[in-house]
């Protein structure tokens, strides 16, 4: 009986990893669709989002069953709670990726803001790196690695502020690009939010290892940090 608990836990952990990899791909695809204004791809992504949601619901159902039927405690309990909480963060990340695809579908002009496209590509690249490191830290139950991932969120926050500044100055220069610029603003905002959810993933990895609920978001721990970072390192 106890063997099957571990077996089931392993299956759920695999599902979680699969979800994580899919979500990373979703971010890649949605950014590609946005920067290349690929409406067909954006439509596909929006239609596919329900898949991640279904996976999350299945994982939740299984985890709740395990809690109700097996009454796990100690490390088994923490593993299940971590799966439940972290998978819902992954699901939110997937939602944001699909929101980016929805924004893409709102674009009704051929004109672009190339330097912001570049900034968005950079942001997405960094975010996917963080997400993959986070999945790695989860597999190895490596809370130190998870904390390092969380610290990187300050770079995402900084890239967000810089991209926002670029977008605003574009709005000031080109009145005809205001509508497009609002779409750009939404996209960088979604990317910034994805960074916060990746920080949450790290917090659950720490909970899994230690039983402690911690705040790892560098911008929340030290609200002045972004301003400092921008002042010391404006690029």
């Amino acid at each position: 009986m106890s063997q099957t608990f571990n077996d089931k836990l392993k299956v759920l952990q695999k599902t979680y990893m699969k979800m994580g990899i899919n979500v990373s791909d979703q971010i890649y695809q949605s950014i590609k669709a946005f920067t290349e204004n690929d409406q067909k791809l954006a439509t596909e992504i929006v239609n596919r989002d329900s898949k991640v949601n279904d996976e999350e619901v299945d994982l939740e159902k299984e985890a709740l069953n395990l809690i109700a039927l097996r009454q796990p405690v100690a490390s088994n309990f923490r593993s299940i709670i971590t799966l439940l909480k972290a998978s819902s963060d992954l699901e939110r990340i997937g939602d944001h990726a699909s929101s980016i695809a929805r924004e893409t579908l709102r674009i009704n002009t051929e004109s672009r803001i190339p330097e912001v496209n570049e900034a968005i590509n950079q942001m997405a690249l960094k975010i996917r790196g963080m997400l993959e490191s986070s999945l790695d830290a989860y597999v190895h139950s490596d809370q130190e690695a998870a904390k390092l991932v969380a610290q990187e969120d300050i770079l995402i926050d900084k890239k967000f502020v810089l991209a926002k500044n670029l977008i605003v100055s574009e709005m000031e220069k080109n009145n005809d690009k205001i509508e497009l610029a609002t779409i750009y603003l939404m996209v960088v905002r979604y990317l910034e939010r994805i960074g916060d959810h990746i920080v949450n993933l790290s917090e659950w990895i720490v909970y899994n290892a230690t039983g402690k609920i911690v705040e790892l978001n560098p911008g929340k721990i030290e609200p002045e940090l972004i301003a400092k970072e921008l002042k010391n390192n404006p690029k």
């Binding site: 097996r70 405690v73 100690a74 923490r78």
Partner: peptide, 18 residues
């Protein structure tokens, strides 16, 4: 503490019937 985060792996294993 014992039921959420015991110091020993043996404790966790026992509590989970493993």
């Amino acid at each position: 503490k014992m039921f959420l985060n015991p110091d020993k792996q043996q404790t966790s294993d026992y509590l989970n019937g493993e």
